[in-house]
């Protein structure tokens, strides 16, 4: 496998980074990077860590990183995670208020502990904390329950002071969305599976409205809605498909993710599993209760319409 870390890869401009990943020869990993500057979204780091974790450290080649900003990779714990020595000498700073280094979460209890541990590190006010822990909890639980990933979830996050924004990356190398959704629905492509997974009330565990006792099919719709209302980016990449929620001027929520302002494609390198990146702007964090009211309206309406569409129709002859 080969990964090139560019000078910039955030959700808005992540497509070239994804297209540049070479997935062949999975027992080896070669990492190269921009010589002058490295500034990337945590989802990029989580992806590199997820790809590299199963590879023996002696089979990971990382070129000498010359960009001064490459220290960021060291401080986020990437090389420690991969079991290799970057050769960088840095002073470890207190991470409070700036970033959450790469972490591997494999159980429900580990997730609860992770959330308890990280929130104080961010030094945020309650309204901001609410959205962040909600997003982390729901996305990681999705991995633990549906991904069947031996590695569990690989999580990292960073707080950007200049933009007053938290960026979160949660990645797994499990079965992917298409396989999960197709347990109960019919998605012919990875992109169609992503579309279904983002639709309220659709879960891979059942085709019945209301879900099962344990799953409702609401988690990803909630996350996308949080991003939409706050006018933030959100991306989800699984198989060869990537859906990206773009910033829009409207707060209006749609059940169908393809009605939101978005970009989507299914010609990306095949990612075995799922990668999710979210931005949460702390300046614009919408009142959570107001957001939930909007979700309530859209959710109930969607189920009503879906139910109506299943009504048997009379034959007029």
């Amino acid at each position: 496998m080969k990964i090139h870390i560019p000078n910039s890869a955030f959700i808005g401009n992540i497509d070239p980074f994804l297209r540049g990943i070479i997935m062949s020869e999975p027992e080896e990993l070669e990492i190269t990077a921009n010589e002058s500057w490295i500034s990337v979204h945590p989802v990029v780091l989580s992806m590199i860590a997820a790809l590299g974790l199963p590879v023996k450290p002696e089979n990971i080649r990382c070129e000498t990183l010359t960009a001064k900003s490459a220290h960021y990779l060291e401080r986020m714990g990437l090389f420690k995670f991969l079991g290799i020595n970057s050769g960088m000498q840095i002073t470890e700073h207190e991470s409070a208020g700036r970033f959450i280094p790469l972490a591997q979460i494999k159980t429900s209890d580990e997730l609860s502990q992770f959330i308890t541990d990280i929130i104080p590190l961010l030094h945020l006010t309650p309204p901001h904390v609410e959205a962040i822990r909600y997003v982390v909890s729901e996305l990681v639980r999705n991995v633990l329950e549906h991904a069947n990933s031996e590695l569990g979830a690989i999580v990292s996050a960073q707080y950007h002071l200049k933009s007053n924004m938290i960026r979160i990356g949660i990645v797994d190398t499990g079965v992917g969305i298409k396989k999960t959704i197709n347990q109960s629905h019919s998605a012919l492509t990875h992109l169609a599976a992503i579309q279904l997974a983002l639709t309220p009330g659709i879960t891979g565990t059942t085709d019945k409205e209301g879900g099962t006792e344990f799953n409702a099919g609401a988690g990803l719709f909630f996350i996308k809605s949080i991003a939409k209302v706050n006018r933030d980016f959100f991306m989800i990449y699984s198989g060869n498909a990537m859906y990206k929620l773009l910033k829009s001027k409207t707060h209006k929520l749609y059940a169908d993710p393809f009605k939101d302002k978005h970009s989507a494609g299914d010609e990306f390198p095949l990612w075995q599993g799922t990668a999710v990146g979210v931005d949460i702007s702390l300046d614009a964090t919408h009142e959570f209760a107001t957001l939930l009211q909007q979700i309530r309206d859209v959710y109930a309406k969607t189920i009503r319409e879906r139910k109506h569409n299943k009504y048997r129709k009379p034959k007029f002859i």
Partner: peptide, 16 residues
Amino acid sequence: TIQKIIMIVIDYMQER
């Protein structure tokens, strides 16, 4: 917030 989430779940369970 919790009231809203409970209402969402109760809504869709009754709608189903």
